[in-house]
Design a protein around this nucleic acid. Sequence first.
DNA 1: AATGGGACCTGCGCGC
DNA 2: TGCGCGCAGGTCCCAT
Length: 266
Amino acid sequence: MPELPEAETIKKDLQKYIIGKKIVGVEVFKPKLVKEPFLEEFKKGVIGQSPQKILRRAKVLIIQLKRGRFLIIHLRISGWLFYGEPKEKSRAVFKFSDGNALNYMDQRVLGELRLRNNYSDLKFIKNLGPELFNLSYKDFSEIVRKKKTRIKVLLMDQAVIAGIGNIYAQEVLFRARISPLRKSNTLTEPEIKLLYKNLIKVLKEAVQYGGSSIDAYRDIQGNKGGMEKRLKIYGKKGELCPECNCSISKITVGSRGTCFCPHCQK
DNA sequence: AATGGGACCTGCGCGC
DNA sequence: TGCGCGCAGGTCCCAT
């Protein structure tokens, strides 16, 4: 679910709500979520700990604890966090000494919880390319001109640029008027410029509006994001294109559903 | 090397 | 009303 803007929203919320508080209890209702160490050791290691700092790398949340330990939360597709009363559908609950709980919510149970001494050698961290907001136009342009893969697949390749997923890839391509099927190395200089500009603009806009709540995603207080109302193409198959009034198409690109306007996006 | 499909899971909405 | 199917924000693994 969460792409960069949703993860960034959660990061800011966590900074506001859990820094310095003490974890006094942990319950895990879906043991499969805990990838390491073994469940009992995970619980023992987390209890008594206190979040010092919240980090984000791409779509992954990293909670820095004391004594050089890190609680790593990968939300995958349907994960989100809720701070408050323990919730009925929680997959895991971290109880704090102030009586509140950080609930790990995840309809599809595809997420991951890990307790480790480091995070940089985890596969889904170490293989990441540069963060989108740290990527210069020069570097972006070089990547796009060099690669032959379809542009949408490239945008979603975390080893190339970290943080973009299926919602924002579609959204950015629509705004840049580029077909998701175009081979990366066929983009012209003005197209690459427009794409870069929109990448930064749309993702910043999404952070500003607290991410997109298409289905499950909520912020830490359980509120919807504001960005889904501003999406122009994602999930709008059969609706009218806001630019040209043509019907919006849906195809599969990189084995993911992809909406686009065949008239506007060339 | 790059690409495509399936697996991992649950639950929703749709059509019959 | 009930059931089966397709589909969903990510990532990894395998076959080609």
